[in-house]
């Protein structure tokens, strides 16, 4: 099969898989599936800078929060539809990513990890200490309009499920196309060897900046979705360091730098977290302990993630060798 046909086949299988959850009778189950796919979407967004570009961001909650707060604020204060607010949030997040990333990208990668961590923390503290406009630690509620799809809300969970499937498809396509584009090749080269990339005429700062901004914009759109889905946002939900870590871990565990790895990471980790939470009877901290442990195990066993393990298994069992599934 040509890569395109293979991509098409995988895509069709995914679409089929995405129809199935609609058959579930329980709105609760559909909510869990929707959230899992949202995390998949976020991991794919993170993948652009963290996986493909190889720059460890530990502050993606900041972009998620910017997206949620921007659309909610515009909606609550000015009646702007969150569909438009989504773009405003994305633009704002891209700007923030540029401001955080620019000074760091000239330096070693650890600075970027630190700066993203610090920036997200500053943002959280700032929002918690805001009172009127952003609602401080208690957060903001989205005005309830019930069935108003043009205002990005609906009483039926299927609405949100459909939206998240579309967003996920867009994120997958962006990752797929990026890996085949000039920018994608540049980013992978930079991740491998910055000096060698420089010698081939690649503008390192510009490439990283483009990736960081794209990644932040997509993440912010996820924040808007979350705000509309839950109808409520607060700093500890959308700006927490745990969220930043979760997003990164899903992508890394699944397989950073690949198209399907990040989604796989979310599909594995969210249910695993749910199961662990129940098995351990709600011990506080057990879920995040699992994230930390998985991250360490993956980095020691197979830094390329579960996606790679599955691919190796597939190849070993005598299935036709695929070239460059990445």
């Amino acid at each position: 099969m040509t890569p395109l046909a293979r991509g098409g086949a995988v895509g069709a299988a995914l679409v089929a898989a995405m129809v199935v959850p609609l058959a579930t009778p329980s709105p609760y189950a559909l909510s869990i599936v929707t959230l899992t796919l949202l995390y998949g979407y976020l991991a794919l967004s993170w993948n652009i800078i963290g996986g493909i570009g190889g720059q460890l961001s530990l502050g993606h909650a900041a972009y998620f929060g910017i997206g949620g707060y921007a659309s909610t604020l515009l909606f609550v204060q000015f009646g702007v539809s969150p569909w438009f607010g989504m773009f405003a949030g994305a633009a704002l997040a891209a700007l923030a990513a540029a401001l955080i990333g620019y000074p760091c990208f000239r330096l070693r990668g650890a600075y970027f990890a630190l700066a993203t961590l610090a920036a997200a923390m500053i943002l959280k503290i700032a929002v918690e200490n805001s009172h009127g406009l952003l609602g401080g630690p208690r957060g903001l509620e989205v005005t309830l309009l019930r069935d108003a799809p043009l205002q990005f809300q609906h009483t039926r969970k299927e609405f949100y499920y459909a939206v998240v499937v579309v967003m996920l498809t867009i994120a997958l396509s962006i990752n797929y196309l990026l890996l085949r584009s000039r920018l994608g090749f540049h980013l992978v080269a930079i991740r491998n060897d910055q000096d060698a990339a420089l010698a081939l005429g690649i503008d390192i700062t510009r490439s990283k900046l483009a990736a960081a901004m794209l990644s932040a914009a997509l993440t912010a759109a996820g924040g808007t979705f979350y705000a509309q889905f839950v109808m409520f946002i607060s700093p500890d939900k959308v700006l927490s360091a745990n969220l930043s870590v979760q997003i990164a871990v899903m992508c890394i565990v699944g397989g950073r730098g690949t198209v399907f790895g990040p989604l796989l990471g979310a599909l594995l980790l969210l249910p695993a977290e749910e199961i662990a939470r129940r098995a351990l009877g709600g011990i506080v901290g057990a879920d995040m302990m699992l994230y930390g442990l998985l991250l360490m195990i993956v980095m020691r066993r197979e830094p390329r993630g579960v996606q790679r393990i599955l691919r190796d298994l597939w190849n070993r069992t005598g299935a036709p060798r695929s070239v460059n599934a990445g």
Binding site: V188, N192, D193, A199, N324
Partner: peptide, 25 residues
């Protein structure tokens, strides 16, 4: 253009992809 004395391939990439990086110039 230059080469490096201690060669610096992009290790994760295929040979063709390595060269495509340069070709995008």
């Amino acid at each position: 253009a230059r080469t490096f004395q201690i060669v610096r391939p992009f290790g994760d990439m295929t040979v063709l992809d390595n060269v495509i990086v340069g070709a995008f110039m």
